[in-house]
Structure formats: C-alpha cells, structure tokens
Simulated scan of single mutants.
Amino acid sequence: MLPTLNKNPLYTTEYGSAYVVDSLEALAQLPDNSVNLVMTSPPFALQRQKEYGNKDEYDYVDWLAEFAKLVYQKLTPDGSFVVDLGGAYRKGHPVRSLYNYRVLIKFCDEIGFHLAEEFFWFNPSKLPSPIEWVNKRKIRAKDSVNTVWWLSKTEWPKADVSKVLTEYSDRMKKLLKDPEAYYSPAKRPSGHDISNTFGKDNGGAIPSNLLQISNSEASSKYLKLCKEVGVSAHPARFPAKLPEFFIRFLTEPNDLVVDIFGGSNTTGYVCELEKRRWMAFEERKDYLSASVFRFMQEKPIEEIKEAFNELMAEDENTTKHIPTIQPTLI
C-alpha cells in the first residue's frame, strides 16, 4: 500500500500515484521513516528564468534545503536521497557557480546527510554551452557533466552494486574464456596472490561513478506522443537510464521511491518497470498529465489523446487509473 495524501492523485498505476501538488505540502504528509529512496532532478539554479521555474543561484541553496529537511525525516534509516544537479556559470562571467557544491555542504553539515558517494553523469550528446564562452569566444570547453549526489541518512545505506553490473569489455570476455592465455599475474610485493581473482565470471563489471548516459531523446516515444497530441514536452527531462541505475542499485522490489520534482515522471515510469512502489509530486498539471504518455506507449493515439484530455479536465476529486504497462524503456 502507498501512503495517502489529503488529496486524490491525478492518476494511478499498479505500483504508483502521480500528484499535482506542492512537494513541501506532500512530503509533510508522508509518514516518517517510510521512503526508501528519493530520486529527483530539481530545477537548476540557472541565470535565465526557464519555463519550468528556477531560482536565482543565491537563493537556490536555502530553497532546496527546505525540501531536503523533510526528505531526511521521511527516509527510512537505510534510505537514500539522490539529487541530479547541473552546473552553471556565474552571470556575465566565464567562471563557474559553486551552488551545487554549496548544496552538498549544507545538506551534510546542517541537515545531517552523509555523502555516500559522488557520481558524475556524462552526457556525450549535450550541446555546447554556454554559447558566449564556448561557441563565440572559444575560451571554455563544453560542459557535459552533471553532479549527482548520493546522500544517505546513515553511513551504511542499503545498496547492492551487483544489481547494476555493466557488460564486460571484449578483452575481459576473452580473459574469462581462457584466463591462462591472457593473464599470468605474479605475486604482489605484499605477497598477495591475485591470480585466483581474475578469470571468474561475476555476471558483469562493477560500474564506476562516472555514468555515461546519452540524453538524445529526439526520437523517443514520449516526445513523439507530445507532438502528436499537440502539447509541450517537459523541457528538462533526464534519461530513464539515470534513475534506473539508482533504483536498481539502492532499492528492492516493493520499496517506496518518491520523486519530489516529478516533471514528465521518468522516475515513476522506471519504478513501474522495476516493480517499485512510487509517488511523483509535480506542481504543473500539464506536465504531469503528459507524463501519462510514458505509461500508454502501445495504446492507439486516439485513446492516448482521450486520456490526456480527461486528465487535464479532472478536478481534485477524481483519479484516473492507468493499466499495467509493458516493460520497455522510452
């Protein structure tokens, strides 16, 4: 069972619920020590106001800390808070803002979080920016990495890296096939014999904290359906592979995952595929209504349009249920 709020969700699925709500209001209603993972990508502290809303960098840290204080209360003792934060330049100057690092320091020093590990999301398809410093003046390199803070309530959060192993390299595959032909290690100076640790197939390689995930969604079904229905897609989506990594790494089936800045509900969609209970909170009804496209990808376009229109027309006393989806990422 999912926790309940004092208002109806916009829509539900087999495993989750999506709410048009202020996240501070919604978080306050959740039971303490009930959430296994909060996985989110807040609006970044950008210099220009964006359609989806963002704060000035100097106000940003305190603003986000209000959410983090509630997240800390609601997490289970072994729960985690994963925050994707893009970098930014200081207004009018070719030097970086430190806001994403100030977020980290404040959350740990003042709220009580631990930095379990820092991750870096490398997006090879990211466009060169900012244009002034990279394209025009050519005095800075392209910014292609987001900081992703894995924060925990305890020094020993629940995690299992064996759930997110990566594919072996071609060289490793050859070694596994015939270890003696490709690797003959000598004893280390310490006397430690590592010869028996290689040549064993563990099902994949341990991933690094540099996550290379392209965010080129030009041909995604979500975007195609937004175009066909005639609605604006959320302008700041993260790729499904990013929450998928942390959901598999830090939770188990039936655990509760919450996204406090739901947007197009990528987190909820991945949770549905991974059989995690989920809740998504988003203030903008149009974005959350369009997120239903992720759960209806194989449905006829007329049925999808009808569902979107029903969601946009619904009042707070009605909820639409979306049937179980097929397990494919879009």
Rank of each mutant, 00 (worst) to 15 (best):
K221N: 10
T166C: 09
K187P: 10
L151R: 02
S184I: 14
F245V: 09
A68N: 04
E283K: 14
L5K: 04
N254H: 09
S216Q: 11
P77V: 03
R48E: 12
V82Y: 07
E132H: 11
R137W: 06
V145T: 12
Y11K: 04
K142W: 02
A141I: 14
M279L: 13
P253K: 09
V270Y: 02
D56F: 14
F119C: 14
I206P: 03
A290I: 00
N36W: 01
K138E: 09
D143N: 14
T147C: 13
Q29P: 01
V292G: 00
S214F: 12
L46I: 07
S97A: 07
E57P: 15
P42T: 08
F295N: 03
E25T: 12
K200T: 09
P179K: 08
F107Y: 09
M312A: 11
D170P: 04
W63S: 09
H234W: 04
E110N: 14
L165M: 04
L37F: 12
K142F: 10
N100F: 13
F107V: 05
A45L: 03
N202R: 13
I322C: 02
P243N: 07
K187M: 15
Y72I: 11
S214N: 13
N202G: 10
G204M: 15
I105E: 07
I304P: 00
Y72A: 06
N146P: 05
T4S: 15
D78S: 12
L30I: 06
N146Y: 05
K285R: 06
T40C: 06
P239K: 07
M39R: 03
S184V: 11
S214V: 14
E303T: 07
L115F: 12
L64G: 04
R294M: 01
A205D: 15
W133Q: 07
K138G: 03
E25Q: 11
A186V: 12
K285A: 02
F261M: 09
S264T: 02
A236G: 15
K174Q: 12
W278K: 05
P179T: 09
V20I: 15
I247F: 05
A88V: 03
T318H: 14
K187Y: 14
V35M: 10
L2Y: 02
A186E: 15
F281N: 07
F238T: 02
N254V: 06
P243W: 02
